[in-house]
Amino acid sequence: MTLLSSMTQGLAGGLMIGASASIMLLAAGRIAGVSGLFARTIGLTKACGPDGLAAGFVVGLPLGAGALVLLTGPIEMRFPPLAMLLIGGLLVGYGARLGSGCTSGHGVCGLSRLSKRSLVATGVFMSVAAATVAAMNAAGLAW
């Protein structure tokens, strides 16, 4: 894929994500934070809005992604080995709840709000993630 088309697709997809988060904020009065909405859906918290809103969002995510595949055909994807999926998933779930948010809540909603908590959280998780990838590459664990 050329750089230009990946930039255009990134911007277009980003605008849709921003539109979705805007609907959640202006219509439902809530943050489109996926980790919180997922935790609410599996019964771990009473925050993040009414049950139906959270569950609807969590079900909608794969439906929207699946719709694109139906329209344009399969997307090329590559996943890490099983051990990394399991370790990564555990850390992502634990850390997102402890830090009250993930890439969507802190990154998209919080940064655009100029929230101090989200500016710090996003800076920390971006830096740690980049350092982790660099360390894994150095250790021969790139995938």
Binding site: M16, I17, A19, S20, A21, M24, G56, G60, A65
Partner: peptide
């Protein structure tokens, strides 16, 4: 909202 997010 979730579907638009997932599509994006």
């Amino acid at each position: 909202s979730g579907a638009i997010f997932g599509l994006g």
